Every structure is written in C-alpha cells, then in structure tokens.
Simulated assay, not measured.
Amino acid sequence: MMDELELLKRDWQKNDKKLPQLSFDEIYKMIWKKSSSIVKWIFLISIIEFLVPHLLYFLPSMSKNLAVWKDLGLGNFLLISNVVQYTVVLFFIFQFYKRYKEISTLDNAKKLLSNILKTRKTVKYYVIFCLSLIFISFIVMAVGIYLNEDPMAAMGYSYQPENISREQLKTTLIATVVVLGIVVTLVMGCIYFLLYGILLKKLKKNYKELKDMDI
C-alpha cells in the first residue's frame, strides 16, 4: 500500500484544478510531525536501553559476573569503563532530547533537513560507540585471562581439566571469550538495527520527501 504522505505529495504536485490541492506548508507540517515523533521514539528507546541493564544488576548472576571481573584483576577497568559509559551514553541521550526539542519547535524546512541529518549521524555514532564498548570489554577480559595465573579459579572453577596444560587451557578460554565477543557484538548489532535502523530509515525517507519538494 502506497504511503499516505506520498499520495498527498503527488496531489500537491498535480496541476489538475479539479483535484483538491495541498499547500507546501501542509505537506511540510505532516513531514515535520512524523520526524518529531520518530526522534521522540529514538530518545525514549535510548532511555529504556540505559535503564534495563541496571535492573539486571539485581540478579544474582550479575553479581557473580562482576566478581569474576574483579578476580581477574580487571576491577579498575570495570570502574573506568562504567564512568566512560555513563558519561558518553548520558551525553548521547541528552543529544537525542535536544534534537527532539529542536525538531518539535522548527518552522523552517531547511532547518528540518539539517536536523534530520544531525539526528541520523548522532544515532550512528551512538550505535558505533555501544558496539565498540561491548567488543572491547570482551577483548579486555581475554587479556585478563592471559595475565592471570589461574583464570579457572578466578572464574569460579576449582578443578583442572585432565589431559590439558594450563597454557592450553588459557588459550582455549581466550579463544572462547574472543569468539563470544564477536557473536555478542553481532547479535547486539542486529538488535540495534531493529531498534534504531527502522527509525533511521523512516527519517531518511522524510529527508528525501523534503528534498524532492525542491526546498
């Protein structure tokens, strides 16, 4: 089914006086409202995404995972990464809110075009940062395993598998963590695509609609 806005835009472009014509301002207002709603959803999703992991901290398994990081000697990295994460994520959330407020009060088509571009770039940078932080965390854990004399004990396992040396065990653990990091990063990338990719695609469509109106 053809998009309603596309039909209205075609009506606006027609020269047939028998058909009801829509003004540029009327079509602009429709695109503006759609864009404002999309940016609002981006802002709300970023807040939910920020809050949900903190709720998981109440789970016993999360407490155990935090203890593993400390036992591997990565407590300082965990602290620094949390500070960086909070600072950068809160900065991006503020930027999403700022973009939403700007779009909500715009009355200029060219400014709307510029704001849509800024929003799309901000979301892309946000996704790149989040995925990079996830992957780097796994790499740092792999380094922690390599530097630890007894990574199995640090990870809460008291037994030593037979027929395998400690170095071979370290290599296996490191490889497992790196592969797991790649898989988790790819899975999170797919989730981010679903959360933000669809919204960005709609914003891109709105941008194209405005450009096609010869602004």
Rank of each mutant, 00 (worst) to 15 (best):
L186R: 03
E102M: 12
E162S: 14
I103D: 07
E26K: 14
R166W: 03
V183K: 00
T105I: 03
T171Q: 06
L78E: 08
V184C: 02
L113G: 10
V140H: 09
A153L: 15
E102H: 06
L19F: 11
K205C: 05
T176C: 00
V140P: 08
V140K: 11
R166Y: 06
K40S: 15
V127I: 15
D16N: 15
Y100Q: 13
V127P: 06
Y146F: 15
V83E: 08
N115T: 12
I93M: 13
G156L: 00
T119M: 04
V184M: 09
T176F: 04
D3S: 08
I31P: 00
V83I: 15
R10M: 13
L203N: 06
Y100W: 15
G197D: 12
E49L: 13
S35L: 01
S46V: 07
D16S: 08
V183R: 00
I174K: 04
F92G: 09
D11N: 06
I136F: 12
E209Q: 15
G73L: 04
L169E: 07
S23Q: 11
L133T: 08
A154Q: 01
T185A: 14
R10W: 11
L8T: 00
Y28S: 10
L200E: 12
S114M: 10
M152H: 08
I191T: 13
V123H: 04
K118C: 06
L51N: 02
K98D: 08
L131F: 07
Q160A: 09
I215E: 11
K9G: 10
K111W: 07
Y157Q: 10
M1L: 05
N65K: 08
S35E: 10
V83P: 04
V140R: 07
F96S: 01
F43L: 10
R120L: 00
I27N: 03
S81Q: 13
E49I: 05
K111A: 14
L180D: 02
N163T: 05
N206M: 03
I31R: 00
N65C: 00
M213F: 08
E209I: 12
V127Y: 01
V187Q: 08
I93A: 00
F91M: 10
F58E: 10
I134Y: 10
Y28P: 03
P53D: 10
L210S: 02
V178R: 02
V127K: 04
L19R: 11
H54N: 15
Y157H: 12
H54E: 09
W32M: 05
K18P: 00
L203K: 05
D3W: 07
I80A: 09
E6Q: 13
F94C: 10
Q160I: 14
L56R: 02
Y196C: 01
V187G: 07
K40A: 14
V183A: 03
E162I: 13
D212I: 06
I174Q: 05
L5C: 01
P60I: 04
K110N: 15
V177G: 02
S23W: 06
G75H: 05
S165C: 05
I191W: 14
L112I: 02
T176M: 02
K64M: 09
W69R: 05
Q160M: 12
T105V: 09
Q160E: 14
A142D: 08
I174R: 03
D3T: 06
G156K: 00
F129M: 07
